[in-house]
Every structure is written in C-alpha cells, then in structure tokens.
Computed example of a mutant assay.
Amino acid sequence: MHFRHAEAIWSDYPGLAAGALHATGISSATATAVGPRIAEHTARAVARLTDTTEGQLPEVLAWRRVFTRMGLKPTQYRCASESLLRRLRKEGTLPHIHPVVDLCNAISAAYAVPVAVLDADRITGPLLEVRYARGDEHYTTFTASTEHPAPGEVTFTDSAGRAHARRWTNRQSGHSAVGEHTSRILVVTEAMHDGGTEAVPELLKTIAEELATHWPTDPTTAVLTSSAPEFTFGS
C-alpha cells in the first residue's frame, strides 16, 4: 500500500510539511494505561491556550490561510487540530472515541497540528493519495450517508475512488474511522506553518513512541517531501 500527496498539491503548497506512520497490533484494550499520557498531552494543549485562543496560534493561522485559498470560510470549516483546541477551550475536554484516536487527538492538540488516524484495512489499495477531487469520489459520513466532494476539493482518495477525508484536514470519513475491530492504522500529519518541517518529525516520533509503549507494535514512519513524497506500508 502506498500513501502520497499528488504532485499538484506539492506544487501549489510548497510550504507543506507532512509525515505518515503505520502501526499494527492496535486494539482498545489499553484504555486505562494510556489515560495518563492522554492527560499529559492535553495539559500541554491547555497551557498553550492560557493567554491566547486557538485562532491566534501560528499552526492554526497557516491552515486558515490554506482554507481561504481553497475558497472555504476558515471559521466555518476548520482544520482538525483547530476544532480540537476550540472544543478544549470551550468545554475543557477532548472527545473520547478510541484509545489510539484519543491519544493522537491529544498529541494533535498539543502540537496544534492536524493528525488523521485511519483504519488501514478499510482503505482500498494500492494507493491512498491526497489530491484534487474530480467530483465522482464517494465519501461516507459518520451517519453512513454518502457525499461527493466538489471538483477541485482536496481529498484523501483511495484506488476505489473512496474519499477518506474531505476539505483536506477538515473532516475524516466514517468508512475508515478507527473502531473496536481496528488492528492496523495509518496516521498522517500535515503542517503549513513556518516551523512545520521541525514540528512534523517531532510529532511523528512522539506518536510512534507512545504507540510502542502502550500497544504491541513497532511503528514505521516517514517524513514526506516533494522529492520523497511516498510512504509504503503494510503488505
């Protein structure tokens, strides 16, 4: 299986910093053990919000500029990390979904950088690509309804034409959401701010170390660039 950003994405967004991770042996059985780590990363996110709002963070502002360039109102369609930080600021907590998703959400909030976690067995290979939609892709919502991304929208699209994310880092698909039967995950993180090339490798390392501590797994990772855009994972 291969993951990559299309050449047009790298060309249009040369400031993109991206990384990917693949891990096996994932289950929901370690919810208690991972709890303190989730709390620690969440506390780091809370500390960043002490004297500011999520909309003023450079990591978020960079994605707001990208959304504006894509023709989207950035306060209507927010990148995933901004949505998490906004909820944390308003409600004081992050959602509880699945231990591995909760962990990655907390790390995403701590770094203010979007992190997508997909059930790798729900992706049809051999390719998952971040690319501009043609308009014939099909996207499954969390209520199991089907949508079709507009032509030109940035999507995570697999070889079967299924979109696993809409509006780039705004919303993942219910089809590949991590659940009780998940055993293999693909994690993707993407930054657009000036420090992204330093933040993404650090964020990937943090996730890999946390996964290896709490699950029986030895994750593989890759930092992606326009000259080395592809991550090969799984069998």
Rank of each mutant, 00 (worst) to 15 (best):
I9H: 14
S28C: 03
T32R: 13
T42G: 09
A43N: 06
R44E: 14
A45T: 00
L49E: 00
L49H: 06
T52H: 09
T52S: 15
G55H: 15
L57C: 10
P58K: 05
L61H: 07
L61V: 10
R64Y: 07
R78Y: 04
A80Y: 08
R87G: 05
R87V: 11
P95N: 07
I97D: 11
N105Q: 14
A106K: 02
S108Y: 01
S108H: 04
A109P: 00
A109N: 06
A112Q: 06
V113A: 12
V113E: 13
P114V: 11
D119I: 01
A120C: 12
A120V: 05
T124A: 07
P126W: 11
L128F: 05
R131E: 09
Y132C: 07
Y132H: 13
R134F: 05
T141V: 00
A144V: 03
T146Q: 05
R162P: 03
R162I: 13
H164Y: 03
T169G: 05
G174I: 11
G179T: 13
T182K: 07
L186F: 05
D194W: 03
A199T: 10
A212L: 02
T213K: 09
D218C: 02
T221M: 07
A222Q: 15
L224K: 08
L224H: 04
S226A: 14
S227A: 08
S235D: 15
